[in-house]
Amino acid sequence: MDVREPGDRQQALAAAVDKVLAQFHPQSEFIFDELVVSLPPQAVKAACQLARDDADLAFDYLRCLSVVDLGERRQVVYHLYSTRHRHKMVIKAALPADMPAIASVTSIWPGANWHEREARDLFGVTFEGHPKLTPLLLWEGFPGHPLLKSYPVSGLEDRG
């Protein structure tokens, strides 16, 4: 277990991320105790693989996977945690809204499976390479993606 002070741990995390993910030119900053890293979408899967396997990062736990609707872009957000080093990182990747697709990270963290199915249900993001990208919360044939800003609150159907 890492017994260093929180500030020291954050500096070590920032240095390790700069070194391990250097090939992706990450833009990173600390927001509270989380290191927020913005990456191009095509680099996310390789970066996640490195973040999990590198001994200094060791992000073995995907805490959350969410999507933000930013209008012309949709931002996929990965919240990572290391149970060994007890540090946190957030990876953000912005996708074009007309064709939102990104590589699945289910092969890295099996827990991403249902997160990605839910994200596809509610935001329409396609996760390429997902083993079974079927609806999780909604039902087959549900029209639209309800958490998009453009979706009417009461639904697309005629409510009578």
Binding site: P146, Y151, P152, V153, S154, G155, L156, E157, R159
Partner: peptide
């Protein structure tokens, strides 16, 4: 009642 998911 105004939700897309709820039976009114």
């Amino acid at each position: 009642a105004k939700s897309y998911a709820v039976v009114r």
